[in-house]
Design a protein around this nucleic acid. Structure first.
Lengths: 100, 100
DNA sequence: CTATATTACGACGGTCGTAAGAATT
DNA sequence: AATTCTTACGACCGTCGTAATATAG
């Protein structure tokens, strides 16, 4: 449980946007931050996820595998948060209304 | 995506162990830290997950709902990490062996 | 030469543990 | 009265942005 959601999000966003700098913009961060988040993730997993040059990004096999899982995890978190947000506004149980 | 895995883990551990102090021990933290992690999570979700007195813990309805999802998320992360660990040791593809 | 990625550095923010205080039984 | 939870206070660790450096095309 050493990996963080932020790091997973950085990874997924980099893949989706095609570059670290594009991901940075999308995440409202600097490229520096995204680059480090990615390195941190790889270090924690002890695996190379993305083979990168200054021009091209290429997913490794491990990256491919992890990507799918990371996506699902991020979606699940989003979903859980949204459900809480909903539950806040829509109290459960019967709704009793007195009509005139 | 504001919530963190650490906070979810704190929440789940508190529920499973029955108290904040027990969870703290299990997580190798202080009760103070776990208590704050829990409060942080509730604040971020803007929801009360656990109604707590000094003696009793009671899941709210929202807590119940979130608990199930948090468990699944934590398991998924664990799984993803383990898969990377495996893949590290067991390179994929054909294994060629020259026998004498 | 240009665009992108990484790294060193200093700064800042968030989380921690300790210790004191509050609350429940 | 005892146990547990919470909070205030410093301290610390991790992450950040900037700016400099490296590198691919």
């Amino acid at each position: 449980m050493k990996t963080s959601l932020e790091e997973m999000l950085a990874f997924v966003t980099v893949v989706d946007s095609g570059s670290i700098s594009a991901a940075a913009e999308q995440l409202q961060q600097t490229a520096s931050g995204v680059s480090r988040a990615l390195s941190r993730l790889e270090e924690k997993l002890a695996v190379t996820l993305l083979r990168r040059t200054t021009r091209r990004l290429e997913l490794t096999e491990e990256g491919e595998v992890f990507l799918a899982r990371a996506r699902r995890i991020l979606d699940s978190v989003e979903e859980a948060e949204e459900q809480m947000a909903l539950r806040r506004q829509v109290p459960v149980g019967r709704l009793r209304v007195n009509t005139a």
